[in-house]
Design a protein around this nucleic acid. Structure first.
Length: 212
DNA sequence: GAGGAGATCGTCT
DNA sequence: GACGATCTCCTCT
């Protein structure tokens, strides 16, 4: 894949800062999954920042539990949780060890391994029209969808480093430059819903929900 | 195209 | 026992 030929993996330090800065900086980067059948990759087009103890909407707001301890750990680690009895959502921890914070990945633009992603989503390959955005968008637009497309589960990926060379799930920079970022309130939450902590690439058609 | 409700289960109270 | 950082299907327009 040409898109993946010259990439730089992100380092731990990238995540060792305010989740709002990480959420914005992650836009345009590639989320890459190595599988025995090849590489899956999607460009990150939409994220949400979840702050630590001051953010009522964050899982970490009520303190450290067996479920959310990853958010309190070192930066650059995957936090995967199961929601609504159906879906997994993928986050990455931010800030130094001991300080809670994270970023939720909300939507990807499929870049490589589209056939595998479709299969993982239970969509037949011949149902995907590569020329149509509306068709590709079903693959990974939304937290549950993109997690399913990359085969992300709690058992498999929670606590996994996203910056280790040994990891099969990583984030890389291929030099793509984001022109404009739009910031809106987060989606699907009730508590602290008013804060503008959702970031997406302006005008990108793969953004989930309403893209103002 | 928009809006509403059901599915379904891990986690926390 | 209640609820949730969602998705899909169904109905109505």
């Amino acid at each position: 894949m040409n898109a993946l030929s010259r990439t730089t993996p992100l380092k731990t330090q990238f995540f060792n800062r305010d989740p709002r800065r990480v959420a914005r900086a992650l836009l345009g980067k590639l989320l890459v999954r190595k599988t025995p059948h090849g590489l899956l990759a999607g460009r990150i087009v939409e994220t949400e920042a979840y702050l630590g103890s001051d953010d009522a909407a964050a899982h970490s707001a009520a303190g450290k539990t067996a479920r959310n301890f990853v958010l309190f750990g070192p930066p650059g680690i995957a936090y995967v949780y199961f929601i609504y009895g159906n879906h997994y959502c993928l986050n990455v921890s931010c800030l130094p060890d001991g300080v809670a914070g994270g970023v939720l990945f909300r939507a990807l633009e499929p870049v490589a391994g589209i056939e595998q992603m479709a299969a993982a989503r239970g969509i037949k390959v011949d149902e995907i029209d590569l020329a149509k955005v509306s068709s590709l968008k079903k693959l990974s637009s939304g937290p549950g969808r993109m997690a399913a497309a990359l085969g992300v589960t709690r058992v498999r990926d929670n606590e996994k480093s996203l910056v280790s060379a040994r990891s099969d799930l990583r984030i890389v920079d291929d030099g793509y430059r984001v022109r404009r970022v739009t910031v809106t309130p987060r989606i699907g939450i009730v508590k602290s819903a008013e804060h503008p902590l959702r970031y997406f690439i302006a005008g990108n058609p793969f953004v989930s929900g309403r893209s103002l």
